[in-house]
Amino acid sequence: MSTKVWPLWEVFIRSKQGLSHKHVGSLHAPDAEMAVSNARDLYTRRSEGVSIWVVESSQVFANDPADSDPLFEPSQTKIYRHPTFYEVPEGIEHM
C-alpha cells in the first residue's frame, strides 16, 4: 500500500428538496470527481441525500479557537436578541 495519502475533503449532503446542504463528514480522495464518487458510497448508501457537495478541507478557513471568548462570549449577555419578549396571543399554536 502506498504511503502517500490522498487529500482530505469535506462532504455536504442535501437530504431532500428544499433543505440546505449539511456537513456530514470527511473522506480521502485523489480529486474532486472521485471525492463525489466516494461521498456517494460512504454517505448516501442509506438514501441520505439527493445532492452532494465536496470541498477540499485545506480550502476551509476557520476561526482560531483561542479567539473564542471575544468572538462568542459577548452575545451570551444579549438575550434581547432572542425573540422571546413578545406576548403570544391566545389560540396561536406552533410558535
Partner: peptide
Amino acid sequence: GPAIEEDIALTN
C-alpha cells in the same frame, strides 16, 4: 480495499 473509501465502494 486499498483505502477505506474504495473498500466500501467495491463492497457496495
